[in-house]
Simulated assay, not measured.
Amino acid sequence: MKRLKRDPQERAFVRGYQNGLQGKSKELCPFDQGTNRQAWMNGWREGRSDNWDGLAGASAVHRLNAVHAVG
């Protein structure tokens, strides 16, 4: 059975979110330009916001799943 690949923008968002949640710098974005960079930066901003709000671990995972269920 073939495995479906996830949307590259979704993957970029999730990776950006994880970096932001861990308090890492936005300068670590692996994309130079384009929609993947924008998705990564949006995820990073969400992750930083959740980091500042004190979310971590399971609560952050639930929040991330809720954000992707809507968007």
Rank of each mutant, 00 (worst) to 15 (best):
M1Y: 08
M1P: 14
M1S: 15
K2W: 05
R3N: 15
R3K: 14
L4Q: 14
L4F: 06
L4K: 11
L4E: 15
R6K: 14
D7S: 15
D7E: 14
P8M: 11
Q9S: 14
Q9G: 11
Q9P: 02
R11D: 15
R11V: 15
A12Q: 08
F13Y: 15
F13S: 02
F13L: 10
V14H: 00
V14N: 00
V14K: 03
R15Q: 13
Y17A: 15
Q18D: 13
Q18G: 11
Q18N: 08
N19D: 14
N19I: 01
G20H: 01
L21N: 05
L21F: 05
Q22A: 14
G23P: 09
K24W: 15
K24V: 07
K24I: 07
S25P: 06
S25I: 06
K26M: 01
K26P: 00
K26A: 01
E27Y: 09
E27W: 09
L28Y: 13
L28S: 09
L28K: 12
F31A: 08
D32W: 07
D32R: 10
D32E: 10
D32K: 14
Q33N: 10
Q33S: 12
G34D: 10
G34W: 03
G34R: 07
N36Q: 14
R37W: 09
R37S: 07
R37Y: 05
R37C: 04
Q38V: 05
A39Y: 12
A39P: 08
W40D: 02
M41F: 03
G43F: 01
G43H: 01
W44A: 00
W44K: 00
W44F: 02
R45W: 03
R45D: 04
E46L: 10
E46Y: 05
G47P: 07
G47I: 03
R48Y: 04
R48T: 12
S49G: 07
D50R: 15
D50F: 09
N51K: 12
W52P: 01
D53F: 08
D53W: 02
G54Q: 08
G54Y: 09
G54W: 05
L55T: 03
S59N: 06
A60K: 01
V61F: 08
H62E: 09
R63K: 11
N65S: 05
A66C: 09
A66W: 01
V67Y: 00
V67W: 00
A69I: 05
A69C: 05
V70C: 01
V70S: 06
V70N: 04
G71D: 03
